[in-house]
Amino acid sequence: MSGRIVHIASNTFREAVRDRVLYNLIAFALLLSGAAILVGEISIDIEKLVVINLGLTAVSLFGIVIAIFIGIGLVSKEIERRTLYTVLSRPVRRWEFIVGKFFGLAGTLLVNTFFMAIGVFAALLYVAHRFHMPDAWILVALYFIVLQFLIICALALLFSSFSSPLLSAVFAFSLFVIGSFAEDLRGFAGMAHGLSRWLATGAAYLVPNFSALNVISSVAHERPVAGPLILYNTAYALTYAAVALCGAVLIFEHRDLK
């Protein structure tokens, strides 16, 4: 069982890499080095701040875009090319396929993020000339970004398990935007009355909470991240991804592959 999930995951990873997904790293490197050089010219004081802010934001956005655009095609492309038929005519269960695809995509993003992280630290070294202790919090911010990716991957898979790639992309991206304002959304919900308050609160807890996973600006200001927050955010991201993944499995398990 686990063997097949590993095989599906590694095949997904291999396809993504050969499909030149990692080429985005070139764009990322250009953006970051351009910014590092430019910022150095403009102002001395905030160059580090800008490099961290811009670098981490770019890591997050690049990854989200990749996660959505690969994620939405993972299932539909395999149906379109009928490769899924040959996979499922083997002793592979449908849930194994979904879980394998998830890990393959997550692995792709993890490797991608690893290279981007190196880029961020290189740019930081270029502007600040040396590292010091608070820079370690950048690693926490990067870790939170990876947690975001896990949620987005699972959501993209969930949507692609029942809707067209274009709609899936729209759904996943809107959830990302809404989720980035999740705390404000719960604020809005708290201001409503009666039934709409219940509905709004329910919806506010249903959307993924990306705002708590975004500590970029606080890290850029060298503020530490609380230990328990790291713990709870990890648990939250994992359970939320599990929810989306279970949804994808449930839908896919009963779907006619026309």
């Binding site: 095949n11 291999r14 396809e15 050969r18 499909d19 090319r81 009928r82 490769t83 038929y85 040959t86």
Partner: peptide, 9 residues
């Protein structure tokens, strides 16, 4: 029917 398979393999 008319399979395509994984292009990059």
């Amino acid at each position: 029917e008319q399979p395509y398979f994984y292009d990059y393999l």
